Computed example of a mutant assay.
Amino acid sequence: MRKLPKSVNKTIRYIKYDAPEDKLDALEREINKAIERRKQGRESEPNDRSFQNAFNAVDCD
């Protein structure tokens, strides 16, 4: 396996084992959006709270 940054490994581990199923769609959307931005050469804004807002919009009770 290629060596990935620690934060990526932690994210993958979270998705595999701890993320509630109802939050997987929000995670997938935000990760795909970040990848597309990177491929297009755009940097995400440092104050972009869209992921946090999307993630908090789903109750995990």
Rank of each mutant, 00 (worst) to 15 (best):
V58F: 03
P5M: 05
N32M: 10
A57W: 11
G41F: 02
K39R: 11
L4H: 03
R13W: 01
I15T: 13
S7T: 13
S50Y: 01
R2Y: 08
E30W: 04
D59A: 14
D25I: 09
K33H: 07
Y14N: 03
D18S: 08
D25R: 15
V8P: 00
I31A: 09
T11V: 04
N53W: 03
Q52F: 12
F51L: 10
F51T: 09
R37K: 02
D61W: 07
N56L: 12
D48Q: 08
K3Q: 14
L4E: 03
T11A: 03
E28F: 14
T11F: 00
N9P: 00
N9D: 02
K10R: 03
V58C: 10
R2K: 15
Y17W: 09
R37F: 02
A34M: 02
E21L: 05
S44Q: 09
P46L: 09
D59V: 03
R42V: 10
A19K: 00
R37L: 09
K10S: 01
A34N: 01
E45M: 07
E30M: 12
R37C: 08
M1G: 13
I35D: 15
E30C: 14
M1H: 15
A34S: 07
Q40N: 07
A57N: 09
E30A: 11
E28M: 09
R38G: 07
R38H: 14
V8K: 00
E36M: 03
T11S: 00
G41E: 02
K39W: 06
K33V: 11
L4R: 09
L4M: 06
K39S: 11
D59S: 11
R37D: 04
V8E: 00
D61A: 06
D61M: 10
L4N: 06
Q40E: 15
Q40T: 04
D61S: 06
Q40W: 03
E30N: 15
Q40I: 01
A26Y: 01
A26R: 14
R29S: 11
S44L: 11
P20C: 04
Y17M: 07
E43H: 12
K10P: 00
A54L: 08
A57M: 07
V58D: 04
V8N: 05
S50A: 12
P5T: 13
K16P: 02
K39M: 12
A34E: 13
R49Q: 14
K23S: 14
I31E: 13
D48L: 06
F51S: 07
E21Q: 05
N47S: 06
K16F: 01
N32S: 07
K10N: 02
R49L: 07
R38F: 08
N53Q: 12
E43Y: 14
Y14W: 02
